[in-house]
């Protein structure tokens, strides 16, 4: 190497203007790929395309195809002929109730999460500083990444008839209130852990962090000067919130709702463990493909959330929610 010579000798250094290519098969191969951007991109994208495009989307399509098959009611075997009969079954009152129940639950969970998430996200994004910022971050991340089953289990402990919530209400002399709530038809029940209300609380708890994070991200992107500008132009704090902050945070709320809505639609474990014994879509899919062995109906059931989420994602994309993810 000639680089050892002092810098001042640079001027008339006889070093070549173009160096000789280096040896080594791997470096050469890498360079060849880098010099052909199309090959480069192709190689980078090939594994993911094979994995997700072929294996994952392939399975999804295979499932979709099965929803157009039907089941022979006598033999219990799948008839591999195109029919819309299975989809017709979805409209039977029993099955349709399952769909309606799930969508209503997903919608109420989404609304509740948005309402609960906003103050947390707003505070974390605009007021929390230093140590409190870290506390809020971890306070959101810990429940988000904690084991799903442990969280469900924790709520089973909380909501149990002999559990802490009943005890708390008794201590506060509010047992009458709990009983009044549980006495409400439909949402009430014998105890919180076997009522729709219980299912709703647990769903909201479990998916809440998925709402907080995108809302917080979108709020953090609202520059402080913007609210100052609005105030300068005469907006009261209330107007500022309604006319500036809320519209700018909306993509974040929509992004969060993708998660809360989708996750509630497809969950079959929470209503199985906490709730009345009435089925949700996820449970219906699970029992149809498992014990009932009716793969076509299970497949048709899964198409419902796919269609709902497809419409939802399309709408969210138009509202620019993907940037807030």
């Amino acid at each position: 190497m000639t680089q050892a010579a002092p810098l001042s000798a640079t001027a008339r250094d006889p070093a070549p203007a173009i160096f000789a290519p280096r040896g080594g098969l791997l470096p050469r191969l890498v360079d060849w790929i880098l010099r052909h951007p199309r090959v480069f991109v192709f190689l980078m994208v090939l594994p993911i395309t094979l994995w997700l495009g072929l294996v994952y989307v392939g399975s999804l399509i295979a499932l979709l195809i099965q929803s157009f098959f039907s089941i022979d009611e006598f033999s219990g075997l799948v008839v591999r002929e195109f029919t819309l009969k299975t989809y017709g079954e979805l409209l039977r009152p029993y099955n349709f109730d399952i769909i309606l129940r799930t969508v209503l639950m997903a919608a109420s969970v989404t609304v509740a999460s948005a309402i609960l998430a906003f103050p947390i996200a707003y505070f974390a994004a605009r007021y929390a500083r230093g140590r409190w910022k870290a506390v809020f971050y971890l306070g959101i991340m810990l429940p988000l990444w904690s084991s799903y089953l442990v969280k469900v289990y924790a709520w089973k402990l909380v909501l149990a008839k002999e559990g802490i919530l009943t005890w708390l209400f008794a201590k506060l002399h509010l047992t009458w209130l709990l009983e009044a709530v549980l006495a409400v038809p439909v949402i009430g029940g014998n105890s919180l852990s076997v009522s729709y209300l219980g299912t709703f609380i647990v769903f909201t708890y479990i998916w809440l962090p998925y709402m907080i994070l995108p809302v917080q991200a979108s709020l953090e992107r609202v520059p402080a000067t913007l609210t100052e500008a609005a105030a300068d132009l005469g907006a009261t704090p209330r107007q500022n919130f309604r006319l500036v902050i809320l519209p700018l945070a909306l993509p974040g709320v929509v992004a969060g709702s993708i998660f809360t809505f989708s996750l509630t639609l497809g969950d079959y474990i929470i209503p199985q463990i906490i709730g009345s014994s009435r089925l949700f879509i996820g449970q219906a899919v699970y029992t149809q493909q498992g014990t009932a062995g009716n793969i076509p109906l299970a497949a048709a059931f899964t198409v419902v959330p796919i269609v709902i989420m497809g419409i939802y994602l399309w709408a969210a994309r138009r509202m620019g929610a993907f940037d807030a993810l």
Binding site: A15, P16, A17, I18, A20, R22, R35
Partner: peptide, 17 residues
């Protein structure tokens, strides 16, 4: 050309530039 040597097709790291 860089100092009379053909440069097109030569990657950046082989150029004494």
């Amino acid at each position: 050309e860089i100092f009379g040597e053909r440069a097109e097709g030569v990657p950046p790291y082989l150029r004494n530039v």
